[in-house]
């Protein structure tokens, strides 16, 4: 696959990286917990049929310290609105994973005419006391890869510094990604998204890793129950929370097939 084209857009005085690859109808992707410090095979798989546009969320890799000026949930939702618009994703199909999935759902709820179809991979935003999601910020460092992915090596490959890279900025950027997610979702991951789910009218696909150790499978039903857009649930066997890292081809295929 060819390298993605990199551009940037300005948001609240900070730069946000935008990757573009492939051709065909446009599809956007908002990344999950940890963000995208590097391009991933899942995006190649989407780009085989689509023009994939990947804007970085503020504070996540590629998004500088843009999270530091976002104090409320309204600030975040408006940042996503501007990001989608400036990245050229108005009215396009939109995919979001984990933390980014929650923001994609917010966007689809509040600006229903700006999303054609919506695919959410284990989105955050709800909390069920009877079946609590795992706290991603209260973990020993060696346990994190196995919580994020069914195969810990997938997370490690995402987060490993590039060959020959020993600048302190790389590890700092990875901590910042976790902080940016915390800024939105601390302490429970509950943004009261539940109240806004009925506003989502776009056709919606819910994808869940069969081995998600962060957000329980029961949350898929809660999302499906709340969303107005007749959601369909697809469970990807052998995938963990960030299913697109564990099973890039299967997740991309599920999305592309559903979009056809």
């Amino acid at each position: 696959m060819p390298e993605p084209r990199t551009s940037s857009i300005e948001l609240n005085g900070f730069s946000c990286r935008v990757w573009t690859a492939g051709s065909g109808p446009t599809i956007g992707f908002l990344a999950g917990f940890g963000g995208l410090p590097r391009w991933i095979p899942f995006l190649d798989a989407l780009a085989r049929e689509r023009t994939v546009i990947v804007p970085s969320l503020p504070g996540f890799p590629g998004g500088e310290r843009g999270h530091t000026v976002l104090d409320s949930h309204l600030d975040w939702v408006l940042a996503v609105r501007q990001l989608v618009h400036k990245a050229g994703l108005d009215g396009a199909d939109l995919v979001g994973s984990s933390a980014g999935g929650s923001l994609a759902a917010e966007f689809a709820a509040i600006w229903p005419h700006q999303v054609k179809r919506l695919a959410l991979i284990a989105p955050w935003g709800l909390f069920d006391e009877a079946d609590p999601a795992t706290d991603p910020w209260a973990q020993r460092a060696p346990d994190v890869p196995g919580l994020m992915c069914a195969d810990p090596a997938c997370w490690e490959a995402l987060k490993a510094p590039p060959e020959g890279q020993n600048s302190p900025e790389w590890p700092i950027e990875q901590v910042r990604a976790s902080e940016a997610a915390a800024r939105i979702f601390w302490p429970l991951g509950n943004t009261k998204l539940e109240k806004r789910l009925p506003l989502i009218t776009a056709p919606t696909l819910l994808i869940w890793g069969g081995e998600d150790r962060i957000v329980p499978r029961s949350y898929a039903d809660k999302f499906a129950h709340g969303i107005s857009g007749k959601p369909e649930i697809r469970v990807i066997p052998g995938a963990g929370h960030l299913a697109e890292l564990d099973k890039p081809d299967e997740v991309a295929a599920a999305i592309l097939e559903w979009l056809r």
Partner: peptide, 24 residues
């Protein structure tokens, strides 16, 4: 917890080789 330690302090820790890793 991420964000508790400022980036400037993280940077000093990493550069001085005193801290074990950024996350610690």
């Amino acid at each position: 917890p991420p964000g508790y330690t400022t980036e400037e302090t993280q940077r000093r820790g990493i550069q001085s080789q005193v801290a074990q890793a950024a996350a610690a």
